[in-house]
């Protein structure tokens, strides 16, 4: 996926705020990229532009060489929003099957996954016939991630999927996603507020700065895979965490000047 020179601003002429200023980014096939930065840096806006939910004023996005509109038509984009956004009147299985049922013309020529199998690998095998309200917040979010993986999209876009969960639950869901992704390597663009989360999951971390929203630094996470919880305790992880936090602090101080 390629993002080139995206520009976007909001508001009336005199009070116009530039939210994204010349943002360019390439995500390789099977690469996990996190977007991190202070609030107002436009990371969620960038995700919306890539998802085709919001139009940019300038620049272009291409997914596998196709425009976002064309990619959506082919169901190439899997979205995991901030809230699980499951349909309360459908069982978990029916919720996860939904992307296969919708826009069926785009199903041709792709390897759809069995919803039951994917739910089982997400640890939701026993919850398939339940309704969203019967599940905990963490399980709901896992179902929402399964829903994005099930139709085999080219790229997954995740907008702070764990932000509504408490810290312990959050870590559990994070490791669940890590496990699943490591055995199903898809391109992912992952927006987060959490530095450890970004390091644990990503191949690269894109650090964004605010006012105007732009990319300040791209940090390679060259920690070995497969990763697991033990990584938190390693020196390499801590060094990198220190480095990212420091870079984040600099970006935020610069914004306050």
């Amino acid at each position: 996926m390629q993002v080139s020179n995206i520009t976007k601003s909001f508001g009336p002429d005199e009070a116009r705020v530039t939210v994204l200023n010349g943002v360019s980014l390439t995500i390789r096939k099977g690469e996990f990229v996190s977007l991190i930065g202070p609030s107002g840096c436009g990371k969620s806006t960038l995700l919306k532009v890539v998802a085709g939910l919001s139009d940019a004023d300038g620049g272009s996005v291409s997914i596998n060489g196709k425009s976002v509109a064309e990619a959506a038509r082919r169901k190439a984009i899997g979205l995991v929003p901030q809230s699980p956004a499951l349909l309360p009147w459908r069982t978990i299985l029916d919720n996860v099957s939904l992307p296969i049922k919708i826009n069926p013309a785009a199903n041709a020529g792709r390897t759809l996954r069995d919803p039951k199998e994917i739910l089982t690998s997400f640890g939701l095998g026993k919850a398939m016939d339940r309704y969203p309200a019967q599940l905990s917040g963490g399980m709901q979010q896992r179902a929402a991630i399964a829903r994005a993986f099930v139709f085999d999209p080219d790229i997954l876009l995740m907008d702070e999927p764990f932000s509504a969960l408490d810290e312990m639950n959050r870590d559990q869901q994070r490791m669940g996603l890590l496990d699943f992704w490591q055995s199903n390597q898809k391109s992912v663009l992952f927006v987060t507020h959490s530095v450890p989360e970004a390091i644990m999951l990503s191949d690269r971390i894109v650090l964004m700065a605010a006012h105007p929203g732009r990319i300040a630094e791209i940090i390679d996470v060259d920690l070995p895979r497969p990763r697991n919880e033990a990584l938190y305790a390693t020196d390499a992880f801590r060094d990198l965490e220190g480095y990212v936090r420091n870079a984040l602090r600099k970006v935020m101080e610069a914004a306050h000047v």
Binding site: A51, A72, G78, L79, P81, L87
Partner: peptide, 27 residues
């Protein structure tokens, strides 16, 4: 309508009818 669910429908390129039948009507 749940805006986040609507976003999911949009990225799937759901038709107007599909969005109505599966999201707006039951919702």
């Amino acid at each position: 309508v749940d805006q986040k669910a609507l976003d999911v429908f949009k990225t799937l390129h759901a038709s107007r009818w599909e969005t109505f039948r599966d999201l707006r009507l039951p919702g």
